[in-house]
Simulated scan of single mutants.
Amino acid sequence: MPVFNEEETIGTVVMRALEHVDEVICIDDGSSDASARIAEACGATVIRHRVNRGYGGALKTLFKHARQMDVDALVVLDSDGQHDTNDIPRLLEPIMDGSADFTIGSRFVEGGGGTHMPAYRRLGIRVITATSNLSNELGIRDTQSGFRAFSARALDRLRFDAEGMELSLEMLEDAQEKQLHVREVPTVIRYDVPKGSNYTAVSHGFTVLSWALISLSQKKPLLVLGLPGIGLFATGAAMGLNVAQNVTNTLDTFLGDGLTAIWVGVLGLSLMATGLVLQGVRSLLRHLIVEHFGID
């Protein structure tokens, strides 16, 4: 589990987790409090970062260490007490029976939920999840849950670059590309813990949503650029027709509205053309990669 200044909760979480797993590994991500010492005293193996690298940086270190240990499975959960350690066996069951490579403790499948979950956070997660699902075919309902489990196969194949919270989406994108089987398992996540996430809902949401939109623009440029392009072109056309109908107005007004209609329409056409070109280039590159390297 990643740890950053969680001295109030880390001890309890470590001891409860040890009831279900063989070993607990804590990545102390530059904490300035006693988190690392408490985790060690409670039986965890602690790996320290000299500086705070972020959630993604902590998981990179965790994955590297798990591969070196040649583990059968890895469970990742938060150290602030939000996740119920009693659900660890539920996440591990599909991994151990071979029916899944990657499981997610989900708040939004039947049986899952969030106690005292703020409405704005629920809305934000829904928006991020919907955006993410436009760029992949996994159909995950809770892309932002940090309660996850991975098989040895997933640990060996998954690779990610993000250092921040956007890792949650990058990991799913990579899982689909590597043809890993992802399954959601119901869990209840608490929001009444003494010290919640170190990330504010706004900063977390903005960072992750930005990554999702960038990913979507790379995978479906026609959707991201083409639809706004059509909208702008239609707006420009409507403005042009309005100018034509009011041609009897003064010349200044005619020129001003007419020029606005022209540049809005041209911008729309440019976006549509860019979307078509990028979609074509992506399809061509995918075809070449499959044909010459056998990678799909």
Rank of each mutant, 00 (worst) to 15 (best):
A130D: 15
G124T: 04
P118C: 14
R141D: 02
E137W: 10
R121P: 01
D142W: 04
L59S: 08
T85W: 01
S79T: 09
R107L: 08
A130N: 12
A130R: 12
T143D: 00
F63E: 00
S79G: 13
S99F: 11
L62G: 08
T131W: 06
L91I: 05
R67P: 06
H65E: 15
V71K: 03
G139K: 07
Q68R: 12
I88C: 03
G146F: 00
S79R: 02
D70P: 05
V109E: 00
M117P: 02
V75C: 07
I104S: 03
E137I: 06
F108T: 03
A66K: 03
D87W: 06
T115M: 09
L62N: 06
E137R: 15
S135G: 15
F108E: 03
G114A: 12
R121T: 09
Q144D: 08
S79D: 15
T131Y: 10
Q82P: 04
F63I: 07
A119P: 01
I95R: 01
H116G: 10
V109M: 03
T115G: 05
E93Q: 13
I104W: 04
G139V: 07
L74M: 11
L123K: 10
P118Y: 11
I88M: 05
R107P: 02
M117V: 07
Q82I: 08
L92T: 00
I128D: 01
A73H: 11
T115S: 14
I140E: 00
L62F: 10
H65F: 13
M96Q: 13
D70H: 10
T115F: 12
M117D: 04
Q144C: 12
I88S: 01
N133Q: 15
E93N: 11
V109A: 01
I125T: 05
M117K: 12
T61P: 13
N86H: 14
